[in-house]
Design a binder for these strands. Sequence first.
DNA 1: ACACCAATTTGGAATCATTCTAAAAGTAAT
DNA 2: ATTACTTTTAGAATGATTCCAAATTGGTGT
Lengths: 116, 116
Amino acid sequence: MVSSSNCHMTAEQVFAKLQSTYPKVALATVYNNLNRLCEDGAIRRVSMEGMPDHYDHIQRHDHLVCQQCGQLLDVDLGDLTQQLEAKAGVSILSYDLKLVYVCENCKKTINGKECE
Amino acid sequence: MVSSSNCHMTAEQVFAKLQSTYPKVALATVYNNLNRLCEDGAIRRVSMEGMPDHYDHIQRHDHLVCQQCGQLLDVDLGDLTQQLEAKAGVSILSYDLKLVYVCENCKKTINGKECE
DNA sequence: ACACCAATTTGGAATCATTCTAAAAGTAAT
DNA sequence: ATTACTTTTAGAATGATTCCAAATTGGTGT
């Protein structure tokens, strides 16, 4: 079965990767299984503006998103639940925190053309 | 011109609302202008998993998202930039923070059917 | 081996939000 | 009112994802 990956793959990428080993899997199956795994809490879906969903491991962590190229990077800021609950005044189930920055690659490349 | 609204409307909702007063505006125009306003920093786009983009005012604030019905609510946790930068160890341009909770409405309704 | 039921997979059509495109309509200055 | 520019329009196109009904696969008991 499709097991979770260590990077931040999209359904399409998982599909592509699978094709070499299992040439007959259908894209629908990939979506089915990714969805199932998400429901079961085995993997985590990361959606970002204007790009296909990425799938990620479930260990607690947050994300750095490059403003230029959209590249996604894990970063662990620790568990802020307590703090956020206190400030918001409601009890929360979870939270989604994305830090927008400019990745090293894009910092070099003057106008961010060659990223990703 | 289409000016920003005080709630969290989708392009479709803006379109619908406009139709009564300007029956000939096209949906494409709404998208054009919402996009422009976003670029110009006059409004803010809020994208959430599995639902159309919502548009929001630009004053600094974060969001509460109901897990059941997806309803979006403003909440202000103050500016966490300093703190997050310190923890992440990189300088960030901005951040996007969504707190997942269960709204009052959905808490009442035993299985969240009647929300939104 | 064999038949039976359930669960999974397939491939292709369908959906939905959004963008693209090329033509039409405004708007302004000359 | 003529050119030059910008905005708008309508509808087609796109792209990610879901839906669907048919086909395949997996046991399980015999």
